[in-house]
Computed example of a mutant assay.
Amino acid sequence: MILLLLFFSFFPDLIVSRETAPPILFDEEGEFIARTPYSPAEYPPMGTNEAGESLLFNILVGAKYTIVFVSVVCLLRFVMAFAVAMYYAFHVHKLKDLWKRTIEIAYIIPPVIVVFFMLAPMLGLFQEESFHFMILLMAVLIVIGVPPLALLIGDEIKSELNKDFIKIAKLQGVNNWYIFKKHIWRNIKARMGIFFIQNNIQLLSLLIHLGILGIFIGGSRIINITEEDSKVLPISNEWGGLIGSSYQDFLHHPWIVLAPLFSFMVLIFFLKVIVAGMEDLTKIKHPK
């Protein structure tokens, strides 16, 4: 289902037209019906935003930016975290407790607050350079996510190193890389897959918070609704930005916020189904 969503995200015209709805709708007799934003009943299936853009089209277009961005960030986090975790597991012994306490204290402040204060002053500089802002946001999310993930992976490796047969192998002079490749990785790879999907879910939740704070993947664009009124929307139509750019209008036009929020819920549900399947598979392979 996620791959199908990605496919239609690259080819949204197969499902819905990209044409903007007219600012005012009239019936066959020329009587006024409604004006933008249109509700799902007036402009099915999801309605439009204030600019008359189809919400279904925006959500489909934004799906690839949301899913690919989150997947790439999590993948790069894991690559960097694994390198740190290997060093932590095999070489850090005396300072292990200090390492843990330092990371736990550093993450008392929620990551969303850290990202906001790091990037909010730079929003004006990247107004017209969406790709550069996307790379900057990606770098910040990777850096703040590596330390706790490295600690989590490192503890998994350390728990395997404490098993008797691995201690015996080390006493016989087997090098660390061979032990990891032949013994440890076989036992932890299923859990690493679960950690990866869980990291995706956490990052999706973080994107919602960042969107509400005005941090959008790829930066923002300004659309003119009327001569006096304008609206800030995400350039990439990523889902967190669609929520964050319109949450103030929830009481008046709830469908504009509920459509991307529902999309987030469906995507997270799919990921949780994957996690549940991987956990069941792990139990089958390693019965208690």
Rank of each mutant, 00 (worst) to 15 (best):
L3M: 11
F7V: 13
F8Q: 01
F10H: 09
F11E: 01
D13M: 07
L14R: 00
L14Q: 02
I15R: 02
V16M: 07
P23T: 10
I33D: 06
I33R: 02
P37K: 00
Y38C: 00
Y38H: 07
P40R: 08
Y43M: 00
Y43H: 12
N49A: 01
E50G: 12
A51P: 14
A51M: 09
L55H: 06
L55Q: 01
F57H: 05
I59S: 04
G62F: 03
K64M: 04
Y65M: 07
T66S: 04
V70T: 07
S71D: 10
M80H: 14
A83F: 15
A85M: 03
Y88D: 06
H91D: 15
V92R: 01
H93L: 04
H93R: 12
L95K: 04
D97E: 14
W99E: 10
I105T: 13
A106M: 04
A106S: 05
A106D: 04
I109F: 07
I109N: 00
V114M: 12
F116P: 00
F117C: 03
A120G: 02
A120V: 01
L123F: 01
E129P: 06
S130V: 00
M134S: 07
M134T: 07
L137G: 01
V140N: 01
V143Y: 13
I144F: 10
I144D: 07
P147N: 11
L149S: 08
L152S: 10
I153W: 02
I153C: 09
E160K: 00
D164T: 15
F165R: 04
L171K: 07
L171P: 10
G173R: 00
V174N: 03
I179N: 05
F180S: 12
K181G: 12
W185I: 15
I188C: 10
I194D: 02
I194K: 00
F195R: 11
F195T: 06
F196E: 07
I197W: 11
I197L: 13
N199C: 11
N200Q: 15
I201C: 01
L203E: 09
S205D: 15
L207C: 10
I208C: 06
I208D: 10
H209P: 13
H209E: 15
I212F: 04
L213Y: 01
I215Q: 03
F216S: 05
F216K: 02
G218Y: 00
I222D: 14
I222C: 15
I222P: 15
I225Y: 03
E227N: 15
L233T: 08
P234D: 09
G240P: 06
G241N: 00
L242P: 08
G244A: 03
S246G: 04
Y247R: 01
L251I: 15
H253R: 07
A259W: 05
S263M: 09
F264M: 04
F264V: 08
V266E: 05
V266K: 06
V273D: 12
I274L: 14
G277C: 02
M278L: 13
P287M: 01
